[in-house]
Nucleic acid binder design. Structure first.
Lengths: 205, 205, 205, 205
DNA sequence: CATGAATGAGTATTCATTCAT
DNA sequence: TATGAATGAATACTCATTCAT
């Protein structure tokens, strides 16, 4: 404990700074886009020198990737929790929807970075985002497959297709919300409406 | 026909070259992404000199925008046609889904450019894509509202939310398809499955 | 005669066009400067196609050089006439001053092109302008030397120095006039005042 | 002294580099002209990287303008000193002539840059040079006006015209010297001869 | 003679990254 | 760890010139 806190004294400020840089980057990326953002702008927004960024990240790409990984990683953790809680699959789907939209609602800038900026480099998208994406989609697909096995969800739908459609719909709602609206209430309302639409569509009648 | 060929004598070569540049750009953009693509690469792929591109487009951005505008414009035209044909709203939704997926299925590179590359410049996305995008969404929203008026679709769903979700789901299906799968059959199958899911979810019971 | 007029039918329009291009170039050069002027702008101002300019001039430099040569050439011709008229040297100096200022007063744009634009290319200045310049200066120097021989002008002044100073003073008056004033009357008044100043300064007392 | 060296610790290297770039630019501009000079050539001559130039100057234009401003600024400072020393106006005129020619004689390249290169961009000339130029002319004009008030100089000459002619003559002498001669002695001799010519011409008899 | 579409060499400027302090 | 001055590779775009018609 003592050792940890001693170590913390040395690590904490560093972690702090890393996070400060990430937060600054999220803000600037959201406002100007990844390519239009200068490393010096991130540094300025984070209150550090340009060179300092390279002490915490390999390069500019790495800053974006780390933001995505941390963001989607958190989402994955939450998702796993939801699934493990053994609720009904129907309830799980509801939670997934609330989670994805709710998570981002709280961090509009992060939402824009993940939905928009990440696509700015096909290379990054394919290399880093896709695998995590697939993991996320597979978890959702698993829930749907489980629902089919339980006889709750229609069996004539490919779970992967349903999962992709679900994710895409949520991404689309987030995108238009992030670009135009920005009102938290509207996103929450959209979430519940879409949940109803999706569940009615997928449930066995 | 005769008239067309007469007109062609003056316009065809120019239009031809413009289109050749666009097609070349679609290919290169899809492969390397917008920002990573060099103007000289587009020129080379199109078989023209670098400077020639600037006789047909204002700048590199303009090339991307024109691709999107022509692509989405075509989609809009088809969509309007579908709606005007006075089919049932249910049928219209089916056609919209087939249309959007079918249109892109035929042009995988274009699909990737529109779903991925366009988001590479927030500025372009907001400035040029958003308006056409909104028009597209409004047309879909109109179909849904019409269905509600006819008593066919549930009235507890906001047409705009449903439209965005629909578009997003299709975009998501296209994205994963363009990035991973690429098999035309799978996209068509996904289309019919998703149509069923969406319609079951939105119809009045 | 008949043959000449027949030939004229073929040559006249050509000469016409050459001059039209020169006049157009003078206007545009004066307004935007040599380097900032596009060949296409000259073409447009002259009402010809870009390529046509290359039928009458070797290149863009050649257009400027030809303007200078024709302008200074005319000045040289007039100057020789003045000297040959056997007036008193004092009278000749007066005429030179009136000539240089008067010639340009009538063509303000040409004045700016010669005083300002020609210096825009050191290469052109050294290669084409300098020799003609020297000829001009030598003519003036000759007048001064003649005045010294006649005992009218002070012998303690190097004729070359006096000639350069005379030319420079006139150039300076023209430059400020072309850049700021532009009122013909003021240039004429300046001419007579400077003539008085210069002659009083050079005459033997 | 001590204070200067302390300040130097922080400022000197920067100022040093800025000046090194200016000196290099003067050399290259004089040899090749402003437009024909590549930024990379200046950088190479100054022994810095291309990008470094942009840490000290806004752009290529700014390099030229700064050279002129520093050069003419120094001349203005000296000129004010001369005038403040309360010498006779006649003496002041002599000093002005010696100053302008002497100043440049010591720096032939700077002379060529100021007399030739500066005119290469009408825009720069009008925007940056003209104001300082006018200040210089007004100082000279003031000396002449003072001489008229004292009854030493002829009152039938417009002080502004006389000042412009004086400046132009000196500029002309410098120009031909910089382009052809280059012998310091000849410029000094020309200075005294021209001073005599000008003063004899302007003095009341 | 005249055209103007096409060419492609040529360059100022930016900005991610480094490294001496 | 932190800095930020210096680097220099990399590239969109321009525009004088050509040449097929």
């Amino acid at each position: 404990m003592n050792r940890r806190s001693v170590a913390a004294k040395k690590r904490a400020p560093a972690t702090d700074k890393r996070e400060r840089i990430q937060q600054a980057a999220i803000k600037v990326f959201a406002r100007k886009g990844f390519y239009a953002t200068r490393v010096s702008e991130i540094a300025k927004a984070a209150g550090v020198a340009d060179g300092t960024i390279y002490l915490y990240f390999k390069n500019k790409d790495d800053v974006l990737v780390s933001i995505f990984q941390d963001g989607i990683g958190q989402l994955l953790d939450f998702l796993k929790e939801v699934i493990e809680r053994h609720e009904s699959v129907e309830e799980q789907i509801k939670r997934i929807i609330e989670l994805q939209l709710g998570q981002l609602e709280a961090q509009r800038d992060l939402a824009e970075v993940i939905t928009v900026n990440l696509r700015q480099s096909s290379r990054l998208l394919k290399q880093y985002a896709a695998p995590l994406f697939m993991e996320y989609l597979e978890l959702i697909g698993g829930v749907i497959a489980q629902g089919q096995k339980e006889g709750v969800f229609r069996k004539d739908l490919n779970p992967k297709v349903a999962a992709r459609a679900l994710y895409g719909a949520l991404d689309g709602l987030t995108l238009t919300w992030a670009l135009h609206d920005g009102d938290p209430a509207s996103l929450r309302k959209a979430a519940s409406q879409f949940a109803s639409l999706f569940l009615e569509g997928i449930k066995v009648r």
